[in-house]
Structure formats: structure tokens, C-alpha cells
Design a protein around this nucleic acid. Sequence first.
DNA 1: CGTATAATTGAGATTAGTCAATAACTGTGG
DNA 2: CCACAGTTATTGACTAATCTCAATTATACG
Lengths: 226, 226
Amino acid sequence: MSRLARPSDSTVLSFQVPPCHTVFAADPVLRSVKAHDALFFDGDEFTNLYEVVEGVFRASKIYSDGRRQIVAFAYPGDLVGFAQSNRHRFDCDALTAGKVRPISRHALLSAVKTRPALAEKLLSAAVDQLSCMQELSMILCRKSALERVASFLCAFREKTGADRYVQLPMTRGDIADYLGLTVETVSRNMTNLRQRQIIELPEPACVRILDLERLRHVAEEDVAYH
Amino acid sequence: MSRLARPSDSTVLSFQVPPCHTVFAADPVLRSVKAHDALFFDGDEFTNLYEVVEGVFRASKIYSDGRRQIVAFAYPGDLVGFAQSNRHRFDCDALTAGKVRPISRHALLSAVKTRPALAEKLLSAAVDQLSCMQELSMILCRKSALERVASFLCAFREKTGADRYVQLPMTRGDIADYLGLTVETVSRNMTNLRQRQIIELPEPACVRILDLERLRHVAEEDVAYH
DNA sequence: CGTATAATTGAGATTAGTCAATAACTGTGG
DNA sequence: CCACAGTTATTGACTAATCTCAATTATACG
């Protein structure tokens, strides 16, 4: 996986449990949620975090001036809702119907105490996410709108395991608020990619990647790694 | 401390050990470094991380197109050089003369295994940093140049415990590469703040804060928290 | 003291944002 | 099944902000 393909991988509030370690498999309780259901709101008491089992979730923060920041999109395998205080700092809701496994905060804390290996895994995951986040956020600060949109598409594709046909569960507004752009700018750059025959847009929520090579190139052109 | 005052606090690669827990005090080895000395380079094997004891350090990444990203400034109490792989991903060097306490990676890993409480602390610190980083980076992506510069000054002041007289160990170029701006833009906005009588610049590296209230207001005006 | 580096300032180009209009899609109820 | 209303997406014209390039001034260091 290219390093630039990491954005959605680096969701701050969600860190991914390595697939080989089904850390919480012992907990059989699955909760089904419908699209638009909320898992928790900003300010809610932090009692559970959630392992996403199915569906796509959105973590967002709404500021008093009405602006909104999409903090992370969470996919199956991600943990979402980690908080360091007694309260959540973000809203989290479902973009699609899905399933989550709630993990009680208390259970997690005691598990960490009694199972050092688990603590080490979590720490390692957190450090990894921290590092990825640093890279991502700074890259986002520097990239042009076109590069951000292209990066987002590449990352989404990688993350969801899609090949050439990508179904976006989020709106242009969500993408804009995630990438630090406006809806119009996201839309214009989607059009730009379409006009250059890099993608097709059979409908707004569907992206067919015609030329992955060039899409990646556009995503990375300014920020090349050695 | 206001939430916006957190930037330098949220240095990804450096997470701060709570002062009350001198986690590594058992290790007596201190290393003195001169200004511009490097602790490690991007790609070096990850054998040690470092607790900053004295001085200011800079973690940066240089891209093949010549662009540079300042990833973090690290101050006394910060841990710098945490890596999740076998290699460092950033350069780290000293902006000023200082002292660091190297902590061997191996020692840390075994300590985490044998002392669950330590693991918990580290995990908690990492999650905290993760969360702060998310906030910071997104805020930086959205803020105007003036707000970023003002935020930077506020944060630096808080972090270093200065009152009204702030001595900047880094160049305008460092600040620019940290905030995702150009040198010229940083300079212009410093001038802007000076002309508005919010700060004085007796010399480029010295900032006297004349009106902290207004400086904070400029830093936060667009991104208000509820 | 002179040279190299760093900082400031100005003018113009470029990019993304804003405001506004139109088009497409979604879902609901007739 | 269709029509309507509300949301979402696209596009255009214009504005505002930052970047780029260039020149000048200040500072640091040998």
C-alpha cells in the first residue's frame, strides 16, 4: 500500500485492530444500526467505544459558528469513540446501515491491566495511528484541492478493498468537511478528474476509476516520498 | 489552558509524560547536544527514543521535491522519536543546545510488558495526543494564515511557560513549514500583528506580546468551541 | 568588515472561496 | 406510477487569500 493511500487509515478517533488479533471477539454483543443512527454525541459520557463490524461511520465535530469538521470515517475493523476524558468529543453516526460491537470502557481498562500483550498492541496501534495522522494532516495542509480529492479517492478505494468501481457512502459535503475544502471545490475537482478521463461519474455516489495510475500520480505529484 | 493553545502540545511524534510520573527517571544517562546536532535521521534504525530534558528540538521530514514538513517541535518533558516500525520516519535535530535522555526501545518494550500501569499511562498519553492531533491538524487546515500565526505564538507561549516575552528558537522558515505556509506569509502576518499593536518585534527572534487577549482572539476567531 | 543567511516588503499570478443559479437525485404521498 | 418538494450536486462569475518571484534590508558569523 502506498503511503499516500493512508488517509482513511489514519482516522484519529478510530484505530484499526490488526485483523489477526480479534481482540474483542470474546464479546458477542452486536448492535445493528440504521443509516443516520447516532452512536454517541459530542459531550456524551464515554461509556463505550465501538468496533465497526459492518457499514461506514462518520465522526464529526460541529463548531459554534456552524462549521463542521469530519474527523474520521470508520470502516469495518476500526475502533471508534476512543476518548481520553470522561466525555466524547465528537458526534458519531452511521452513513449506512451496519453493525457495531460496543466495548465497555471499564472492560477495556481492566483488560489492559491484566493482559500486557493487549496493552502493547493497543499502544502500538495508537502510536502507529499517531504517526500516520501526523503525516496525513500535514500533507492535507499542503496539498492542492485536486491532490486532496485524488488522494481521498485512492485512500477510499484501498480502505474498502474496491477495485475500479467505488461507491461513496458520504456526500460531497462530508468529503469537503473531511478534506478542509468547500462542496463546490470538491465538485469542481471531481469534474476535473472526469474531464481528464481519469474517472467516470455514472452518478454522484459512484466513481469508476479509469486510470488508477494517473489518479495516484495526481494524488502524489507534489508530495513525493523518497 | 484554552483548547486552541494546544498546538505545540500535540506534537505527534512527541508525547508528553505527565510531570508527576517520571517514568524514565531510573535511567540516569543524559546526553548533551549542541544546537543543530541531530538525534537521528529519517530512515535510521529505531533504537532509542528520547525524553527532552532541556532545549528545543525539531522533527522534520524532507520530501524528494525539496519541500519540508516540520512535524513537531519538542520541548522539555516531551518524548520524541516514537516509531512504530524499525526505522525512524523523520529527522530530528536540536534548535538550541540541550539535553536528552535516550530510552532504549528494547527497555521500553519490556517495561510495558512487566508494568501494566506504565502501559496504561503510555496508552492514555498516546490516545490523548491522537485526539489533540486530530483537532490541531484539522484546525490548521481550516484556519487563515493570520489565525495560524497567532495560534502558534499563543501555543508557544503556553508551552514554554513564557509570560509576555517570547524567544523563538526557530526561524520563520521553520514556522512556515510547521504551519503549512510560506516564509513570506508568516512574515507578513507577524508584521500585521505588530502593526495592530498586538505584538512587538524588537528583533526577529523576540516577540513581546502587548495584548494577549487580542492575540488569543485573533487565534480563535473563526474556530469557536462550544 | 564582508559575505552569507534570514527577514521583510512589494507586485503580480494562482488558487480556492463566496454567492448565485441551475440541474439531478431522493423520497414521499397522491 | 407519477408529481412534487427537499436535498444534493454541478457550474459560472466574481472575490479574496495565499503563493511566487523579485528586490531590499537586517542579522549573524567568520
